[in-house]
C-alpha cells in the first residue's frame, strides 16, 4: 500500500476508534444544552464512567454489565448536577466544574485497585473480514458502542423534530417564559435531560476503558470530555452534526501518529494541534460577529 493510502486508512481507523467517546459526550451535552443547561461536569462523568465500567467488568466478568454500570454512574453524577442547578441562583458553569472535579476525584479514589488487573473487554464487530490486508482488518474492527452512538444521534435528531418530548425539551431550553405559560415542569425536564446526558457521557467513558485504548488508568481521558463539550457548539446543537464532528476529531487525532509512521516527521507538534486549529478555523468562518450562534438554545446561561 502506498503512503497516501496508508494515511487514509489510518484516518478512517482513527475516526472509527477515537471518535466514540467524543460522540457520546457531545450527544449527552447536546441534550442537556437543548434543555437550557450547560454541564461541564461531563468530563467527570466520562472519567467516572471509565472507572466504574472497568471495575464492574472486572468484578462481574461481563463487559456489558460494565457499560451499564458506567451509564448509572454517569447518570448519578448528572442527577446531582441537575438537582443542585435547580436551586435558585446556582450558576451551572461553576457547578459543572465542581461536578467535573468531584467525578474525576471519585474515580481516582475508587479506581486505585483497578489499575493493575485486566478486565474483560467489549467485543468488536469485524467489518474488515473481506480484506486480506491486516491494516484494513484492524481498522474496521468497530466497537458496537460506536453504532449505538450513531443510533442515538439519529434518534435524538428525529425526536427533537417529531415528538412531543423533543418539543418540550426545546421549549424549556429556548424560552422558560413560554414553557411557564404552557405549564411545563421546567426544572424536572432539565434534571431529566441532564441525567440522561451525563449517563451518555458515562457510556462514552466505558468505551475508553473497555474498548479503546481498553484499560483503566488515571490519564485515560486527558480532557476529551471537555473537548466534546466544545464540539457541541461547533456542531450547532445538532445531534447529527455532533456525530460528524466527533468523527472529524477522531480522524484528525490519528493524523499525527500516522504521518509520523509514513515518514512525515517534521513538525509533529503541529499535526497534533490539527483538531484544535480546525475547530478554530471553522468557528471563525461560520460565526458572524455580533449575532447569537445559530441554533443556540435561548436559555443557556451563556446567552442570558
Amino acid at each position: 500500500m502506498d503512503n497516501v493510502g496508508m494515511v487514509l486508512v489510518a484516518l478512517i481507523a482513527g475516526a472509527l476508534r477515537v471518535s466514540t467517546p467524543f460522540l457520546f459526550v457531545s450527544l449527552g451535552e447536546c441534550l442537556t444544552e437543548k434543555s437550557g443547561r450547560i454541564n461541564l461536569g461531563n468530563e467527570g462523568a466520562l472519567v467516572l464512567g471509565a472507572m466504574t465500567g472497568y471495575a464492574a467488568s472486572y468484578e462481574t466478568g461481563s463487559a456489558w454489565i460494565g457499560v451499564l454500570a458506567a451509564l448509572v454512574a454517569g447518570g448519578g453524577l448528572g442527577l446531582l448536577h441537575g438537582l443542585v442547578c435547580s436551586l435558585a441562583r446556582v450558576n451551572d458553569v461553576a457547578m459543572g466544574i465542581a461536578v467535573m472535579l468531584a467525578g474525576t476525584g471519585i474515580a481516582f479514589f475508587f479506581g486505585k485497585p483497578y489499575i493493575q488487573p485486566s478486565a474483560p473487554q467489549l467485543p468488536v464487530i469485524p467489518l474488515g473480514f473481506w480484506s486480506d490486508a491486516p491494516q484494513i482488518r484492524s481498522a474496521l474492527d468497530v466497537s458496537p458502542l460506536f453504532f449505538i452512538g450513531l443510533l442515538v444521534a439519529f434518534v435524538m435528531t428525529w425526536a427533537f423534530k417529531n415528538t412531543r418530548t423533543g418539543l418540550v425539551v426545546r421549549i424549556v431550553g429556548d424560552s422558560s417564559d413560554a414553557a411557564k405559560a404552557m405549564g411545563l415542569p421546567i426544572d424536572r425536564v432539565r434534571v431529566i435531560a441532564t441525567t440522561i446526558g451525563s449517563a451518555l457521557a458515562g457510556v462514552g467513558g466505558s468505551f475508553l476503558s473497555l474498548s479503546y485504548p481498553g484499560s483503566w488508568n488515571e490519564g485515560l481521558s486527558s480532557g476529551q470530555g471537555l473537548v466534546a463539550v466544545a464540539l457541541v457548539v461547533f456542531a450547532r446543537w445538532n445531534p447529527l452534526a455532533c456525530a460528524a464532528a466527533a468523527l472529524l476529531f477522531g480522524a484528525a487525532g490519528a493524523l499525527g501518529p500516522s504521518l509520523q509512521t509514513v515518514g512525515i516527521t517534521q513538525g509533529y507538534y503541529l499535526f497534533y494541534a490539527a483538531p484544535y486549529a480546525l475547530t478554530l478555523l471553522i468557528m471563525i468562518l461560520t460565526v458572524a460577529p455580533g449575532r447569537v450562534l445559530r441554533g443556540m438554545p435561548g436559555e443557556l446561561s451563556l446567552t442570558r
Binding site: 476508534r17 477515537v18 475508553l208 479503546y212 485515560l220 486527558s222 487525532g253
Partner: peptide
C-alpha cells in the same frame, strides 16, 4: 502519559 495517543501510535 497520553493513553489514547499511545494506542493510536
Amino acid at each position: 502519559s497520553l493513553p489514547v495517543k499511545e494506542a493510536e501510535a
